[in-house]
Amino acid sequence: MLAILVVCWLCHGLLALGADDASSLRDKYQSLTQQLKHNQFQRPLYLESAESPSALKGDIYAVVDYPFATVSGVLNDPAHGPANWCDVLILHLNTKYCHASTGSNGDMVSVNIGRKVEQKLADTYRVQFHYRAAATSPEYFQVDLNADSGPLSTKDYRIALEAVGISGNRTFLHLTYSYSYGMAGRIAMKTYLATIGSDKVGFTSAGGPSSEQTEYIGGVRGLVERNTMRYYLAIDAYLGALSSTPDKRLEQRLTNWFDATEQYPRQLHEVGRQEYIQMKYKEYERQQTEQ
C-alpha cells in the first residue's frame, strides 16, 4: 500500500509540474503574439540569442501547423524518440553521422560533427548526447539532449525542445541550443570569424532605425543564431515529411530543409541543392551501417 501511495504521489507531482510548464509556455506564446505575427522570417517565429564570456545560447519560439499529439508522438516517443531525433539532426549541414542507442548510461544520441562538405568519419568529432524526456503530460513535453564535451574545449552542449498545444490544432515550440567554451574554443571561433566566417551574419538587426539597408549581428552571436535556426528548420522539415509515405520521407525531409534554409540566403546559404542532397543521402546510408 505504501509503495502504491508513493507512486501515486510521484505521478501527481509530475503531472502538476507538466501543467505548470504548459501554463508558462502558453503565457510566453501570448506575450509573443505581435512578434510571431510581424517579423522578418515570413513565418510565426521569434529568435533571440545571448553571449557571455564563456557561453552562447540561442532560443527560438515558433508555431507549427501540426497537432500537439503528432509532435509529441515522434519527438517525445519513449521507444523511438532518440532515433527520430537522429533523423532530425542529420539534416544539419555539419552533422555527418547520428546513432541512437540504449545502455547502462541510459538513452544516448551519438553525433559526429564536421564540415559542410563530405568527410570521412575519422576526420569528424563525435559528441555524445544524453537523451532525456524531462517532462511529459497530455498537453506538454520537454526533451533534453545534453553533452558534457565537444570539439576544441567546447562543453555543456544542450539541445532542448519543449512544446504545448494551442488553438487551431497547432503546436507552440521552444527550442534552445547552447554550449560553453574554453580558451581553445574561443581561439578557434575567433580564427573562423576572422577568415572564412568573416562575412557571416545572424538574424538580429544590428543597424539603427536610420540605416538604409538592414544590418545584422555577426560574430559569435551570429554563429549561434544560424545554428539554432538550422536545428529548428530541421525539426520543422521532419514534421512536414510525416505525411509522406515512409519510402519518400527522407527525400521530403531533405527537400524541406534545403528549401527552408534558402529562404534566408544571407545567413544560411552554403551549398547547392544537388550537392546537399547527394551528400546527405550518402551520410544517411552510412549511418545505417556504421556504429
Rank of each mutant, 00 (worst) to 15 (best):
residue 3 A to K: 15
residue 5 L to S: 06
residue 5 L to C: 06
residue 6 V to C: 08
residue 7 V to T: 10
residue 9 W to M: 07
residue 12 H to Y: 15
residue 12 H to Q: 08
residue 18 G to V: 09
residue 18 G to Q: 12
residue 24 S to Y: 05
residue 25 L to P: 01
residue 25 L to G: 02
residue 29 Y to N: 02
residue 30 Q to P: 01
residue 32 L to H: 10
residue 34 Q to V: 14
residue 36 L to G: 04
residue 39 N to M: 12
residue 42 Q to K: 15
residue 43 R to G: 01
residue 44 P to Q: 08
residue 46 Y to A: 14
residue 47 L to N: 04
residue 52 S to R: 13
residue 54 S to R: 02
residue 60 I to K: 01
residue 61 Y to D: 02
residue 62 A to M: 09
residue 64 V to Q: 03
residue 64 V to A: 02
residue 64 V to M: 08
residue 64 V to E: 06
residue 69 A to Y: 09
residue 69 A to R: 13
residue 72 S to E: 10
residue 79 A to H: 09
residue 80 H to V: 05
residue 82 P to K: 05
residue 84 N to T: 11
residue 84 N to A: 14
residue 87 D to L: 11
residue 89 L to A: 06
residue 93 L to S: 04
residue 93 L to V: 04
residue 96 K to P: 00
residue 96 K to M: 08
residue 96 K to H: 13
residue 98 C to F: 02
residue 98 C to Y: 03
residue 103 G to L: 10
residue 105 N to T: 13
residue 112 N to P: 01
residue 113 I to T: 05
residue 118 E to T: 12
residue 120 K to D: 10
residue 121 L to V: 06
residue 122 A to G: 06
residue 122 A to F: 14
residue 122 A to R: 14
residue 125 Y to P: 03
residue 126 R to D: 03
residue 128 Q to M: 13
residue 132 R to W: 04
residue 133 A to P: 01
residue 135 A to K: 07
residue 136 T to L: 15
residue 138 P to L: 02
residue 139 E to P: 01
residue 141 F to Q: 00
residue 142 Q to N: 08
residue 143 V to E: 02
residue 145 L to K: 05
residue 146 N to S: 11
residue 151 P to G: 06
residue 152 L to F: 07
residue 155 K to C: 00
residue 156 D to H: 09
residue 160 A to I: 05
residue 164 V to M: 02
residue 166 I to N: 02
residue 167 S to R: 13
residue 170 R to W: 06
residue 176 T to V: 15
residue 177 Y to E: 05
residue 178 S to K: 08
residue 179 Y to C: 00
residue 180 S to V: 00
residue 185 G to I: 00
residue 185 G to D: 00
residue 191 T to R: 04
residue 195 T to D: 05
residue 195 T to A: 10
residue 199 D to W: 12
residue 200 K to M: 10
residue 203 F to D: 01
residue 203 F to M: 04
residue 204 T to K: 13
residue 205 S to W: 12
residue 206 A to R: 12
residue 210 S to Y: 15
residue 215 E to S: 12
residue 218 G to P: 03
residue 218 G to M: 10
residue 218 G to H: 07
residue 218 G to R: 10
residue 219 G to F: 02
residue 222 G to A: 09
residue 224 V to F: 03
residue 224 V to C: 03
residue 227 N to C: 06
residue 230 R to I: 06
residue 232 Y to Q: 05
residue 233 L to V: 12
residue 235 I to C: 07
residue 235 I to W: 03
residue 236 D to C: 06
residue 240 G to R: 11
residue 241 A to S: 15
residue 244 S to K: 14
residue 245 T to F: 06
residue 246 P to H: 08
residue 247 D to M: 09
residue 249 R to A: 08
residue 249 R to G: 06
residue 251 E to H: 11
residue 256 N to H: 12
residue 259 D to I: 08
residue 260 A to F: 07
residue 260 A to W: 04
residue 261 T to S: 07
residue 262 E to G: 02
residue 262 E to H: 11
residue 262 E to A: 10
residue 265 P to I: 15
residue 265 P to M: 14
residue 266 R to T: 14
residue 268 L to A: 07
residue 271 V to K: 12
residue 271 V to T: 15
residue 273 R to C: 05
residue 280 K to R: 11
residue 281 Y to I: 09
residue 283 E to C: 08
residue 284 Y to V: 14
residue 287 Q to P: 00
residue 290 E to N: 08
